[in-house]
Amino acid sequence: MRDANPPCAFVSFTVEGHFFIIPDHNEGGTTVIILQNLRKDYIVDKKSITALKKIDLTIERGEIFGIIGHSGAGKSTLIRCINLLEKPTSGSVIVNGQDLTQLTSSELQTARREIGMIFQHFNLLSSATIYENIAFPLRLTKRSKSDVDKKVRELLDLVGLTDHAKKYPAQLSGGQKQRVGIARALANDPKVLLCDEATSALDPMTTQSILKLLGDINKKLHLTIVLITHEMHVIREICDRVGVIDDGEIVELGPVADVFLNPKQRITEEFVEQVSDFDFPLELLEQYRVMPESERNRHQVVQVSFLGDTTFQPVMFQVLQSLPVQFNILHGTINRIKDTPFGRLVLEITGEPADARDAVQQLRARGLQVEVLL
């Protein structure tokens, strides 16, 4: 007979120099969140306003999934539907194998212990110390005083606030307050962590440190993180996949690298432009357009995009060896999307038109994306 309460597996890890042993959430199936035909309507001045329309979405165990959209697009409503802080008008919300919309109030309260949440404005108890803020959700589960103390001190270590346990929220910086929020959200060892604009109230340097902390926790705990933001640099820095939400609908969805390098929707292009460090001056193309046609035919201008391992491979050198053409780099950059390197170059290919076309085909055959600009 199968044990009704099988022993829990544990994983040990180090975050920011501290050693921890915690329950391993990387067991079971791979899909942890399923949203099916999700819809949310509000009644405002006796009129029905639709905030979410037919959302179908799956989020895999251990991934960091980002939802990006402008204010009013529905992203906050969507993330709050995942733990039923907002009850959907229709559709299913399946988290950790349970349809939360079908649970009783007491069952939902229990299920929410496996779903941590951090907020834009921290939502800390102002009259409680940092220690008490983190201890609060633990005490709701009636754990012993020694268990609470042990867990709180582990979490203080985890988020780098050991020396601030007796302080009050008003005595902390914004970044420190958010670290308290993260520690509190992790108190009951959740399998899912929801982040509601968790960095938008922070300065860039503090944002970077919070994103690094979330990334480290994700890697070590295999914790599924869902975050919403209106800042594309957050998506590029930490997320594995992204959904772009507009007017209550997911209009684009995919791995961050694919969406970033090949946006299909205009709204996605706008978000990508927020963080694009590739600003090719199109006026440089004018010098080719004014050339005599006989000379212009020997010059082709292309934009080449590299992703992953090809970023550092001598692809262009290999093409140059096989064809009688010359490459002139007009513009270029190399950067990263999370852990994946990528690069973009604008090249002038000089040679006979047929050889230039062959060069483009060879670059594409080697896994590069090539767009002919002229």
Rank of each mutant, 00 (worst) to 15 (best):
Y168Q: 08
Y168M: 04
I43Y: 13
L100K: 08
R80V: 12
D163M: 09
L103E: 01
A135C: 09
D56A: 08
K166N: 14
I67S: 00
L57T: 05
K145D: 10
R143P: 06
L125M: 15
A128N: 12
Y131Q: 11
K145H: 11
L140E: 15
I68Y: 00
G174P: 04
M117H: 07
G72F: 08
V93Q: 00
I59V: 09
P137L: 09
G62C: 08
I82G: 00
K53M: 12
I79M: 04
R143H: 06
R139S: 07
L161A: 07
D45S: 13
L85M: 15
S105H: 15
F136R: 06
K75L: 01
S173V: 05
N123P: 10
I68V: 08
I55M: 01
A170V: 14
H121D: 12
T77G: 02
R113F: 09
I49H: 15
S71D: 03
D157E: 13
I79F: 07
Y168N: 06
K46Q: 13
K150N: 14
M117A: 07
V93C: 01
A73Q: 06
A170I: 13
M117S: 07
I94Y: 04
S144G: 09
R80L: 07
P88C: 02
L57R: 03
D149W: 05
T141H: 14
Q98M: 13
G74A: 05
A135D: 10
N83R: 08
T104R: 11
R80T: 12
L158S: 06
S126G: 14
F119E: 03
K87N: 14
I59Q: 03
Q98P: 10
A165M: 12
S173P: 02
Q176V: 04
R80N: 07
C81K: 03
L85I: 15
T129N: 05
L57Y: 03
L100H: 10
Y131K: 11
L161M: 05
D163K: 13
E132C: 10
L156F: 08
H164C: 12
I43R: 12
F122K: 02
G160A: 09
L78Q: 01
C81D: 03
K53D: 12
T141M: 12
Q171L: 08
I68N: 00
S92G: 13
I68H: 00
E107Q: 14
K46W: 05
D147A: 15
Y168S: 04
L125V: 12
I49C: 12
R80C: 08
H70A: 14
G175W: 08
F65M: 02
D163Y: 12
D99A: 09
L85F: 11
L78R: 02
H121T: 10
E114V: 11
N133S: 06
E86V: 05
F136G: 04
G97L: 02
L125S: 13
L85N: 07
Q176W: 03
K87P: 11
E60H: 15
T89P: 11
I82T: 00
P169Y: 02
L156N: 04
N83C: 07
I68P: 00
E107W: 13
K151C: 14
D45Y: 13
K87W: 09
A111H: 04
S146C: 06
D45E: 14
V95C: 04
L57A: 05
G116T: 02
I130N: 10
P88S: 03
T77D: 01
I82C: 00
I94E: 04
K166Y: 11
E114D: 09
L161W: 06
L140N: 14
D157L: 13
D163L: 08
